[in-house]
């Protein structure tokens, strides 16, 4: 009648293959359009991105059904998700460590070509105490609201926890919008020497992660609204909270090193 083991033996699924191919298509199209092989008017970039999003959404849908409606996510399976996500977070931190290294390599000892100063000669830097400070405040507020939401959820306050999670999502959306504004108004580009390259690599990678975080937070908000989590079984919520805090901390490091210290 029952399973004699707590493991989840996954049924055959097309989504790993579908999302792999979609990722490859998106990456190739991005690279080719950046080098002018794919005309910008062809909408290929948008199409491949949508295919990627659709395959991810369908895969997640299957996972949610398995976890919430079939109940195959036993304690052991959840522990596995936890390990997997924490290792993913570790790899993210290491990617950022590499970018910080690249930045600090030039910043700690500016060469003669940079004018022996950091930021390099003639670079008009972004004012740290203007938009970046506001972004920092937004991000820290989102950290506060996500914690509020988590506490409310654990204590059974359905309405307020969902509202707090929705506010968190909005705060992160506003952060990304302000980041776009900052990029548009910045006086230097990614091709302006090592400063431009490392600056946009660091803040841009963080920005991409914030877009991912928006997707994760919206998923969690919707799942909270439809109550597919319980008080103690909410792996998706837990991992999203970890992710948002990790990105908060990375932003604080970016803010100090890339904006204030320059």
């Amino acid at each position: 009648m029952m399973l004699a083991h707590p493991y989840h033996v996954v049924t055959p699924s097309p989504w790993p293959m579908a999302s792999s191919i979609a990722t490859m298509n998106f990456m190739l199209t991005t690279a080719l359009s950046m080098h002018g092989y794919v005309p910008a008017s062809s909408n290929l970039l948008l199409i491949t991105f949508l295919v990627l999003v659709v395959s991810i959404v369908l895969w997640l849908k299957d996972t949610v059904i398995e976890g919430s409606y079939l109940g195959v996510h036993t304690l052991l399976v959840r522990r596995g998700f936890g390990y997997g996500f924490n290792l993913f977070v570790l790899s993210e931190v290491l990617i950022f460590a590499a970018i910080f290294w690249a930045y600090l390599h030039s910043a700690m000892n500016p060469t003669i070509e940079l004018g022996l100063q950091w930021a390099p000669l003639d670079i008009v830097k972004v004012e740290a105490m203007e938009l970046p400070l506001l972004n920092t405040i937004l991000l820290l507020s989102s950290g506060a609201t996500v914690t509020l939401s988590h506490h409310k959820w654990i204590n059974g306050d359905y309405k307020n926890s969902t509202i707090a999670m929705f506010i968190t999502t909005l705060l992160v959306v506003v952060f990304v919008v302000f980041q776009v504004v900052e990029y548009i108004t910045a006086q230097f580009t990614i091709t302006d020497g090592v400063f431009g390259s490392t600056f946009y690599a660091g803040t841009g990678l963080h920005g991409f992660h914030m877009i991912t975080l928006i997707l994760m937070l919206s998923t969690v908000t919707v799942r909270m609204y439809f109550r597919t989590f319980s008080r103690t079984h909410s792996t998706n919520l837990d991992t999203t909270i970890i992710y948002s805090h990790v990105l908060d901390v990375i932003w604080l490091a970016l803010f100090v090193v890339f904006y204030v210290w320059v």
Binding site: M2, Y69, T74, R227, S230, R231, T232
Partner: peptide
């Protein structure tokens, strides 16, 4: 779950997770 409450694991769990 009851209306406007967060489900507990007892109220919500199904399948092997509930058995466990």
């Amino acid at each position: 779950p009851k209306d406007n409450t967060v489900p507990t694991e007892y109220e919500q769990a199904t399948g092997p997770a509930r058995f466990e």
